[in-house]
Amino acid sequence: MNVHVHQSQIDQLVWRKSSYSSEEGGECVEVATRPATVHVRDSKDTTRAALAIEPMAWAAFVEFAAR
């Protein structure tokens, strides 16, 4: 499913940084959740487009990555 979200809606989201991210840079990811979508972006370059996916797809990814 393609989810189109207007930039003004992205700017209003509450972003949380991954607990695996450090203050030293590197691979940093931020996530913001809405009822129908999970938004993921690069915390080092927040001007780039965020990825918007369905919550069930995000849950499957997190479960897979935790293995």
Rank of each mutant, 00 (worst) to 15 (best):
M1E: 12
M1R: 10
M1G: 15
N2C: 05
N2P: 10
V3F: 09
H4Y: 12
V5R: 12
V5Q: 08
V5A: 12
V5M: 15
V5Y: 04
S8V: 09
Q9S: 15
Q9H: 15
I10R: 11
I10C: 05
I10D: 08
I10E: 03
D11A: 15
D11S: 14
Q12G: 14
Q12S: 15
Q12F: 05
L13V: 08
L13D: 10
V14T: 15
V14I: 12
W15L: 11
W15S: 08
R16M: 03
R16S: 14
R16A: 11
K17A: 06
K17E: 11
K17D: 00
S18G: 08
S18M: 10
S19K: 12
Y20P: 04
S21Q: 09
E23N: 14
E24F: 09
E24H: 10
E24S: 12
G25W: 05
G26A: 10
E27P: 00
E27A: 12
E27S: 11
E27K: 07
V29E: 01
V29M: 02
V29L: 13
V29S: 08
V29Q: 08
E30P: 09
E30G: 07
E30W: 06
E30H: 10
E30V: 03
V31R: 06
V31H: 02
V31F: 00
T33C: 13
T33M: 11
R34D: 00
R34E: 03
P35T: 11
P35H: 05
P35Q: 00
A36C: 07
T37S: 15
V38K: 02
V38F: 03
V38M: 01
V38I: 15
V38G: 01
H39N: 12
H39R: 08
V40K: 04
V40W: 01
V40Q: 01
R41M: 05
R41I: 08
D42I: 08
K44C: 09
K44I: 02
K44E: 08
D45H: 13
D45S: 12
D45G: 05
T46F: 07
T46G: 04
R48T: 14
R48P: 07
R48A: 15
R48S: 14
A49F: 00
A49E: 12
A49W: 00
A49D: 13
A49Q: 13
A50E: 06
A50F: 05
L51R: 01
A52C: 10
A52M: 03
A52K: 00
I53W: 05
I53K: 06
I53G: 08
E54D: 14
E54G: 11
E54Q: 13
P55Q: 09
P55F: 05
M56H: 15
A57F: 01
A57L: 12
A57Q: 12
W58P: 02
A59V: 00
A59C: 03
F61K: 09
F61I: 05
V62P: 02
V62F: 08
E63T: 15
E63F: 09
F64P: 01
F64R: 13
A65R: 11
A65V: 04
A65Q: 06
A66M: 05
R67K: 13
R67A: 09
